[in-house]
């Protein structure tokens, strides 16, 4: 499953895309994606919250994912 990352989340992960091998790591919901990313990249926890969009729609942690879903991690920004 391919995860797209924006802004400071991309800086933390070091890439604009991150792939979760669903054969190796069970990943069924948006909440699973959050847990996997935060475990792999603990610095994400310093953001305190970030949004997840699935197929261009804001998604809460209970949303069930399919392999073809487009998942995006949207962190807060503060510049102006």
């Amino acid at each position: 499953m391919t995860i797209h990352l924006f802004a400071v989340a991309r800086d933390i992960v070091g890439s604009s895309v991150y792939t979760i091998d669903t054969k190796q790591v069970p990943c069924c919901t948006v909440g699973d994606v959050r847990r996997i990313l935060c475990k792999e990249f603990p610095e994400l926890l310093t953001l305190r919250s970030f949004a997840v969009a699935v197929n261009q729609r804001l998604a809460d942690d209970t949303v069930v994912l399919t392999p073809h879903d487009e998942v995006a991690i949207i962190p807060p920004m503060s510049g102006g």
């Binding site: 400071v8 310093t46 953001l47 305190r48 919250s49 962190p75 807060p76 920004m77 503060s78 510049g79 102006g80």
Partner: peptide
Amino acid sequence: PNADAISDC
């Protein structure tokens, strides 16, 4: 968010 975690301009 933590102010330190995300920078301003």
